[in-house]
Nucleic acid binder design. Structure first.
Length: 271
DNA sequence: AAGTGGACCTGCTAGC
DNA sequence: TGCTAGCAGGTCCACT
């Protein structure tokens, strides 16, 4: 579910409210992707710092280390007054003096892991391979072109991998390639510099626009206030197989690449 | 080393 | 109506 925009929208919806709060309780539900990595009681009485984001991960600093959180495919965070009776998919509660941060994740591909810092331990291991942030000024056409030149996989798979640039998952990779007019099957090393310039620009624009409208809610995404996103309403290709392209009148197709669905317009996206 | 396919887990929907 | 197969926003790992 959550790609960079959903994670960022989530962060923005609770970061200011949890900062400075003190942990008064921890509840752990069913196992998530990775073990917590510390005794839950060890988190008690610590104060939460400023929540940051790296790719699709959130970093919640504490007095001693912090929590690295990932929403997987179906996770969402709520903060504030949560139901005192946790539901079957509520797998982690961080009770604080400012409210409870609750991870709900039916598929349990998400994670909450303690790490001694964001640059060491488990966090370092998870974040090490991530590519550049799309809003980093150093991410531009030259950067993208140079990275794509080293890969032979399709440009769609290269974007999804997250080792070149983080944040564009299946929805936004499809949308960015659509807006750039690039066929998702194009080999990475065949993307010209002008097309890389355009692609870098639209990746940033698509992700920024999605953050502005609260992310995409395909089924269950909510920010920490419980608000749904609206980007899915303005998607050009994602989930629209068989419909007509708004730009050229062609037909939107669905194919599978690397086991993931890709949506694109056969009329205006070229190799 | 880079590329590929399967694994993780649950819920929903389309189709018979 | 009820069952089943297929599909879903993301990573990681083993294997070639």
């Amino acid at each position: 579910m959550p790609e960079l925009p959903e994670v960022e929208v989530t962060r923005l919806s609770f970061a200011a409210r949890i900062e400075g709060a003190r942990v008064t309780g921890v509840r752990v539900g069913k196992p998530l992707r990775w073990p917590l990595g510390c005794a839950p009681e060890a988190l008690l009485a610590q104060t939460v710092g400023a929540v940051t984001r790296r790719g699709k991960y959130l970093w919640l600093p504490l007095d001693r280390g912090g929590l690295l959180m990932h929403l997987g495919m179906s996770g969402s965070l709520a903060f504030g007054d949560v139901d005192p009776v946790p539901g079957p998919h509520d797998h982690f509660d961080l009770v604080t003096t400012g409210g409870t941060l609750r991870l709900t994740d039916p598929r349990r591909f998400g994670a909450v892991v303690w790490s001694p810092s964001s640059e060491t331990g488990v966090a370092a291991k998870r974040l090490a391979r991530l590519g550049i942030e799309p809003f980093d000024p150093r991410f531009d056409g030259a950067h993208l072109h140079a990275a794509l030149r080293r890969r032979k996989v399709s440009v769609k798979q290269a974007l999804l991998g997250g080792e070149i640039v983080v944040g564009a998952g299946n929805i936004y990779a499809c949308e960015a390639l659509y807006q750039a007019g690039i066929d998702p099957r194009t080999r990475s090393d065949r993307i010209s510099r002008p097309r890389a310039d355009r692609l870098a620009a639209v990746i940033r624009a698509v992700l920024a626009r999605a953050v502005d409208v609260g992310g995409s809610t395909l089924r269950d995404f909510r920010d920490a206030h419980g608000n749904a996103g609206a980007f899915q309403l303005e998607a050009g290709v994602y989930g629209r197989a068989g419909t007509t392209c708004q730009r050229c009148g062609g037909t939107i197709r669905r194919i599978v690449q690397g086991g993931r669905a890709s949506y694109f317009c056969a009329g205006c996206q070229r190799r």
